[in-house]
Simulated scan of single mutants.
Amino acid sequence: MGEALGTVFVTGGSRGIGLAVTRRLLTAGYRVVAVSRTASSELAALREAVGDPLTFLAADLTSGDDRIAVADRLRKCADLYGLVNNAGVASGALHVATAWSDVSRMWQLNVEAPMSLCQAAVKAMYRGGGRIVNISSIAAHRTFRGLGAYTATKCALEGFSRVLAAEVGGRGITVNCVAPGFIDTAMTAAIDDDLRAAINRRNMLDRGATPDDVARSVEFLLSPAAEAITAQVIRVDSGSGG
C-alpha cells in the first residue's frame, strides 16, 4: 500500500458505502479510522488483513457523549487529512404518518453529527489543510414521496457544506458532497418496491450505481486532482437525477 498519506475518519465505515470507502482509501495509502456502532464481520476481516492502517472506533453518533468522544479524537489527530461523513439513516413514510422519533433520529445522525464532527475536524485541519466529504443523497435534488424528512436532512447537509467551504477555504480545507442515487445497502432496505422501481426507471445508464462507484468519487475528492474543487456536489446516480 506504500507510505500512508494521512488519516481519514469515515463514519458509518463498517458497512455499505462506508465500508467501500474504507477499503478504497486503504488501498490508496491512507490510514483510516472507521467509526460505527459495531464492527461488521467484513470490517473485522479487513482489519485482520491490513493491520495498523485501519482503526475501528465504536460510537453511536446519535449519542451526545459518543459524538463528543469522536470529536475529541478528531481534534487530537496529529496527521488528520480527511473526514468522510457517511453515517446516516433513512425512514420512509408519508409525512402525515411519520413518527417524530424517526424525524429526530434522522436529524441527529444526518445533520447534527456531521456538523459537530466537521467543527472538530476543521480545528485539527487548521494546522495544514485537509478535505471534508459529506455524503448527501439524490433525494436533495429530486422529489420522492415518502422521503420528506430524509430529504430535509440532506438539503440541510448540502447547504451547510457550501457555507463551511466558504468559511474554511482560506485555510486550505475543501468541503464537498457526494450524492448517491439509489444504492442497494442496508439503509435502503426499508424502501418499498414501488419507490425502488420508480427510482431505477429514471436511470440514464443501463446499470445502477454501486457503493464502490461512490467510494471512487470520495477518493477523487481527497486526491490532489481535486485540490481546486470545493462547495460542490457530485451526483453518483447513473443519471437518475436528470
Rank of each mutant, 00 (worst) to 15 (best):
I135V: 15
L164C: 01
E167M: 15
R162S: 07
R142C: 07
G146I: 08
H141Q: 13
L157P: 11
K154H: 00
G128K: 15
E167K: 10
G148M: 07
H141N: 03
G169S: 10
V168H: 02
R162G: 07
I135W: 12
T153D: 10
I132P: 03
H141A: 13
R127I: 06
V163P: 04
A149D: 14
V168Y: 10
E167T: 05
G128P: 01
A139P: 09
A166I: 02
Y126G: 00
L164M: 01
Y150A: 07
V163K: 09
V168E: 11
F160N: 05
S137T: 14
S161C: 08
C155L: 11
A140E: 06
S137V: 15
S137L: 14
A156I: 07
K154R: 13
E158H: 09
G146P: 07
F160H: 07
Y150L: 01
G170N: 09
G128F: 03
S137G: 13
K154I: 00
L164R: 05
T153P: 00
S137Y: 14
G169A: 02
G128N: 08
V133D: 06
R127D: 02
F144R: 09
F144T: 12
G129A: 12
G159A: 15
A139S: 14
M125R: 00
L147R: 01
K154C: 02
A140D: 06
T151C: 00
G172L: 01
V133Q: 12
F144A: 12
A139C: 10
R162V: 13
H141C: 07
R145S: 14
T153E: 03
G169Q: 11
G146Q: 12
S161E: 02
A156V: 07
G172S: 05
V168A: 05
I132E: 02
L164P: 11
T151G: 01
L164E: 00
R131K: 14
R162L: 11
A152T: 08
L157V: 04
G128E: 03
K154M: 10
A149F: 12
V133K: 05
G172Y: 02
T153Q: 03
I132H: 04
G130L: 10
E158R: 06
A165N: 07
I135S: 15
V133R: 04
L147S: 06
N134S: 14
Y126D: 13
T151N: 01
I138L: 07
